[in-house]
Design a protein around this nucleic acid. Structure first.
Length: 447
RNA sequence: GCGAUCAUAGCUCAGUUGGUUAGAGCGCCGGAUUGUGGUUCCGGAGGUCGACGGUUCAACUCCGUUUGGUCGCCCCA
């Protein structure tokens, strides 16, 4: 059969795995500096846990797992005859692959409430799956890096998460702009212009501002039945730049804005310590996910055409669907796959990321091959990354292999060397070659 | 779910209005060089031209269908 790989999935070569590990390790190290603890949850969950949390479209994108056994025999004959997938599905599948890390986290918090200390700060770096159409920066299997603080309403965490974004992207050397807004501000804005019943439509529309321009947004709003007067008010709101102008705007509309107060408080924290990246209050930022109730964040690379590299926000009622109220949390996510793509595109990985051997042994015949096997295992025992070509093949072939794996040193062992109990160490970069005694090998490579 | 676009050797790509045996570069294997790679020279292997069907005396080329990639839209990381 022809070898193939499924759409939206990828293989990773050793070099790529090392590059990805570098990204994950960088993110992880920052999370840990801030006192977040790792958790893991299963790859698949009950569909009851997963469905209904991501909207109708989201449910369609869930990968479902077929029931075990002779699952069709238990299906209602009428349903089978009808050929209606929506009716058939609940009878043949009860499990699905997780779609994100947030919903499993909510389940986790509720189930382990008594074992956790609140505020609970967790991070989670695991793959998730979506039956989405693959596109630039979008895959069917990809890693999410989530970090959340749950069980506290303190706006310090909002500021802390902004700092985490700043630290991670500084370490990765990717200049970004961190945008911040507050869902309450948006809610108050729709109230100010007398269109609160269109809150969702308005947020969805203005979220696309940088993509479809005001003309497109205006059209969408009017098509949704929003009054021209309210649309005018929205345009007015969108032209606001900075916290000062928004303060005036709300004053003008006689609204004592709770959202604005929160934004200001977050900035109060942020002013206390320096940031490397741009942070910008952006009244047009909305974010699609409807579970956000307070501050919301989004991060975009300054000079790369690649959607958002991360996002997040505060949610007050995430655990509510699992019958647990009053658990306010705030969290952000890193789009590790997109970070990987951006860094690849722009060749931003540190040059010394590879993890090569220290030395490759090359022997010329059976007896030196066996001798080299002993020497190799000696070095390995001392923590030196050593390898031996598996057979005393032609020297040219062995050297060529050494060259292609980019090993810095080759240890040549022939009859002459073995008699003198030395190996010829060749520096593959300079071509220089020196005889080193067996007993001095460890010291030579230990630096 | 909707739309655009592409698919030829392991990789990157040529292939004229449809016409004999489908090419190049890189890579791979072997040799020049039986103890020396990255340079050079010589030789070799490797293709059901994504798949299926149609038009034609003749299809990599035209038409239809399908699968897959890429890029938009929806949504999202």
């Amino acid at each position: 059969m022809k070898a193939s790989i499924l759409k939206g999935t990828r293989d990773f070569l050793p070099k790529q795995v090392i590059q990805r590990k570098y990204i994950f390790d960088t993110i992880k190290s920052v999370f840990e500096i801030y006192g977040y603890l790792p958790i893991e949850t299963p790859s698949f969950e009950s569909l009851a846990t997963l469905t209904g949390k991501y909207g109708e479209d989201g449910d369609k994108l869930l990968f479902k797992i077929l029931n075990n056994g002779d699952f069709l025999s238990k299906v209602d004959q009428n349903v089978l005859d009808e050929k209606d997938s929506r009716k058939l599905l609940p009878q043949i599948t009860k499990r699905g692959l997780r779609y994100d890390l947030t919903v499993p986290f909510a389940r986790f918090v509720v189930m382990h409430e008594n074992e956790l200390n609140f505020p609970f700060k967790r991070y989670q770096i695991q793959p998730v799956w979506r039956a989405d159409r693959p596109q630039k920066g979008r895959y069917q299997e990809f890693y999410q890096c989530d970090v959340d603080a749950i069980g506290s309403e303190s706006l310090m965490y909002e500021a802390e998460l902004v700092k985490i974004y700043d630290d991670v992207f500084t370490k990765l050397d990717i200049p970004v702009e961190i945008r911040i807004n507050n869902r309450k501000v948006l809610e108050e804005m729709t109230r100010a212009i007398g269109a609160s019943e269109f809150f969702t439509e308005i947020t969805v529309a203005i979220d696309k501002l940088d993509k479809i321009e005001w003309e497109g947004v205006e059209k969408t709003l009017l098509n949704n039945g929003i009054s021209p007067n309210a649309v005018k008010g929205i345009k007015n709101y969108l032209e606001i730049e900075g916290i000062g102008e928004l303060t005036d705007w709300f004053e003008h509309h006689n609204i004592n804005s709770k959202g604005l107060k929160e934004i200001k408080d977050v900035f109060e924290y942020l002013y206390l310590t320096p940031l490397n990246n741009k942070i910008k209050f952006d009244p047009t930022l909305a974010r699609g996910l409807n579970y956000y109730t307070g501050c919301i964040f989004e991060v975009a690379a300054e000079d790369a055409d690649m959607g958002s590299l991360g996002g997040g926000g505060r949610y007050d009622e995430l655990t509510e669907v699992f019958d647990k109220k009053g658990m306010s949390g705030v969290g952000i996510s890193f789009g590790a796959e997109r970070i990987f793509d951006v860094m690849n595109e722009k060749e931003m990985f540190p040059k010394d990321l590879v993890n090569p051997l220290d030395v490759l042994f090359i022997a010329f015949d059976e007896s030196t091959h066996r001798e080299a096997f002993k020497l190799t295992s000696n070095l390995r025992r001392r923590g030196i990354k050593a390898d031996l070509y598996p057979s005393p093949a032609k020297m040219k072939k062995q050297m060529k292999y050494a060259n292609s794996i980019e090993v810095p040193f080759v240890a040549l062992l022939g009859g002459n060397e073995m008699e003198k109990r030395v190996v010829s160490i060749k520096d593959m970069q300079s071509g220089e070659q020196n005889e080193i005694a067996y007993d001095d090998l460890v010291a030579f490579f230990k630096k």
